[in-house]
């Protein structure tokens, strides 16, 4: 589903490469943790998958397409197949939960009938059916992340990228979010999650890719946060 081949990413004006010669393959339906300290290249890894940045050298293939060579006008189509969640939720403050989730479908031109049907189903799935009219500021952190997850998966993407999705949440709430991510993964979506949360990684026992100073230093199936 995602293949990195000798990928190096150097940002303009930076001496050190954000990613250096990284090669890794992530199969369809896998759940992968990206771990490593701040600045190790986790977010860059996700940005390259999303084609928010292009590799300086090497090849990034997502769902069979070389995203580095992809023409700009094809990028929106690529992103329709990738859901994304962030540490800071990125919900639109003036819109209700329902509107935030529906927005993701409206802006890609989905018909109103479909939106009316799919959004409540998705909110039900993430446990926010009874809070669909609330504004983001009226929700707890965990609920906001659930709303962000609903928005990310409402279009049924094949890949879900999660950049520190539990970074702003307390441990109990984080467990709820991880259960949800696990369910989404069990339904067939490939999940790549960048995290600092060792407890979650250690409990879930999924594949772990560790980055350090932009280099891939560990790729372990059923791994843990640190070496064992």
């Amino acid at each position: 589903m995602i293949t990195f081949t000798e990928v190096t990413k150097r940002y303009p004006g930076q001496k050190r490469a954000a990613l250096s010669g990284v090669s890794a393959g992530i199969a369809d339906g896998e759940f992968v943790f990206l771990v490593g300290p701040s600045g190790s290249g986790k977010s860059t890894f996700l940005r390259l998958v999303l084609r928010e940045a292009r590799a300086t050298s090497g090849q990034v293939v997502v769902d069979g397409r070389d995203v580095g060579r992809m023409a700009g006008w094809r990028v929106p189509k690529l992103r329709r197949g990738i859901g994304t969640v962030f540490q800071d939720f990125r919900l639109l403050p003036g819109k209700s939960v329902h509107e935030n989730v529906a927005f993701a479908l409206q802006v890609i031109g989905r018909p109103g009938r479909e939106i009316k049907r799919v959004v409540p189903e998705t909110l039900e799935r993430v446990g926010l059916a009874d809070k669909s009219d609330r504004l983001p500021e009226e929700l707890s952190g965990g609920e906001q992340q659930r709303a962000a997850l609903a928005r990310a998966v409402v279009n049924k993407p094949r890949i879900l990228l999660a950049d520190e999705p539990t970074g702003n949440l307390d441990p109990t709430t984080s467990v709820g979010i991880m259960k949800l991510l696990d369910e989404i993964n069990r339904d067939g979506t490939t999940v790549v999650m960048a995290t600092h949360d060792s407890t979650i990684v250690d409990q879930m026992r999924r594949r772990v890719i560790e980055l350090s100073n932009g280099e891939l230093i560990r790729d372990q199936t059923q791994g843990v946060y640190g070496y064992q």
Partner: peptide, 10 residues
Amino acid sequence: GIMRLVGASN
């Protein structure tokens, strides 16, 4: 930013 992320066309 959200529009770009979810794949809205330019």
